[in-house]
Amino acid sequence: MFKLSDEGVAYVKKELERYETKRSAIIPCLYRVQSENGGWVSPESINYLSELMDLPVAWINEVFHFYTMFNKEPVGKLHVQVCNNITCCMLGARELTEHISKTFEMGIDELSKDGKITLSKVECLGSCDTAPMMQINDSYHENLTPESAVKIIKDMVHGN
């Protein structure tokens, strides 16, 4: 059974008060659930959130499915998101994505064999002047080459 930590519950209570309506707290609370649930939001946790927030579960589920930053499946500790929009593609983002995929033997939106990495293609991350680029969890990595990207990921996997 998924449950938020005490701090998590306190956070939800605070967010419910923070905006003009309770409903506005859905996005922040989904973020909280995602971070406490190992990087993704399970159906079970949506049910839990609905009860905790006292809001219809369909409302929460609509928001959950609408926004791409809420992960629908478990993801690795490193969520590698390579921008595959226009400028990045012009400058080799797809070749780079394929290189990462081959190196770590994983498909798009799939977990690597060791379960540590998920590779995703994402839309424009607003860093086109440093294309190609990727986001790993919350941080940007810019001006990449296939080799530098792989090195960054390897370093992170090894905790450097």
Binding site: R23, W59, Y67, T68
Partner: peptide
């Protein structure tokens, strides 16, 4: 903080999002 949707850059899409909706 939004959560990943280009359409929220449209002003009324943004308002819907801020209201806690799609």
């Amino acid at each position: 903080r939004g959560a990943g949707a280009y359409i929220c850059g449209e002003e009324t899409g943004m308002i819907s999002s801020l209201e806690g909706k799609k």
